[in-house]
């Protein structure tokens, strides 16, 4: 069976949670959900997950706790959480925007609002998932800062996973750095599809392939690759 770009994205999302132990994992999109589902079933069995409504559920989906919004806020202020959010914009400093594009008083495009992104990023570990790496998302400076980057006080921006590779904020002056490329993706593609210069280290990693056992789990979580199949190279 051939390993697809979508499979590498799931592995990269799962790896983002490695070492997290007993904290609440909050993946905000289907591919990160697959990644957390895989980590939970393999190397991070103690992750705490929700049903997406108001309860904590174990790996079988059985309820093991109550987590309404009021408790979500207390949990995130406590710091025992790792969220993987999406982004309408991310800049070279790791600031994220999900609020609006254009001027604050009359935006060109109103999005959903900052939601909990300012509090998430200042209190606990945050990663991002961008399914379509493009210069429209990766901009020199975001129009509005929802999630704060390292230079604005972020607790930890662990990784940014895209359909091309994995990035962190360990470039010069805490700017975006290429950590690993998914097999088949190139440095040229990354630069072409990013609206600023990504720091390219001397040693570039390659996103690891799933093992046969991992692939079996991923297939079960995503039958017929309905989620992974949407990821373009």
């Amino acid at each position: 069976m051939s390993i697809t770009r979508g499979d590498y994205c799931v592995i990269a999302c799962a790896e983002a949670f490695r070492g997290d132990g007993e904290i609440m994992a909050s993946p905000m999109a289907p591919v990160p959900k697959l990644g957390v589902g895989l980590a939970l079933r393999t190397f991070e069995p103690d992750l705490v997950c929700t049903d997406g409504v108001a309860h904590l559920v174990d790996v079988q989906g059985k309820r093991e706790g109550w987590m309404p919004y009021a408790k979500v806020f207390e949990n995130l202020w406590w710091g025992k959480r790792h969220v993987m959010m999406g982004a309408s914009q991310i800049d070279q400093h790791g600031n994220q925007n999900i609020s609006a594009l254009g001027p604050a008083h009359k935006p060109k495009v109103q999005l959903r609002g900052v939601r909990g992104a300012p509090g998430n990023t200042i209190h606990h570990t945050t990663s991002y998932w961008v399914g379509h790496h493009s210069p429209r998302v990766f901009v020199p400076l975001v129009d509005r800062i929802s999630g704060v980057g390292p230079c604005n006080g972020a607790h930890e921006i662990r990784v940014v996973v895209t359909n091309l590779g994995v990035f962190d904020l360990c470039g010069p002056k805490q700017t975006m750095r290429l950590q690993s490329l998914h097999p088949g993706a190139t440095v040229d593609q990354v630069q072409e599809r990013t609206g600023f210069t990504v720091f390219i280290p001397d040693q570039i990693g390659t996103t690891r392939a799933p093992t046969a056992a991992e692939l079996e789990i991923i297939e079960k979580l995503d039958p017929e690759a309905r989620i992974r199949g949407a990821i373009k190279a």
């Binding site: 300012p118 509090g119 990023t121 209190h123 800062i145 929802s146 704060v148």
Partner: peptide, 10 residues
């Protein structure tokens, strides 16, 4: 008081 919001556009 809260720390949420620091460094952001809010």
């Amino acid at each position: 008081p809260t720390r949420a919001g620091l460094g952001s556009s809010v």
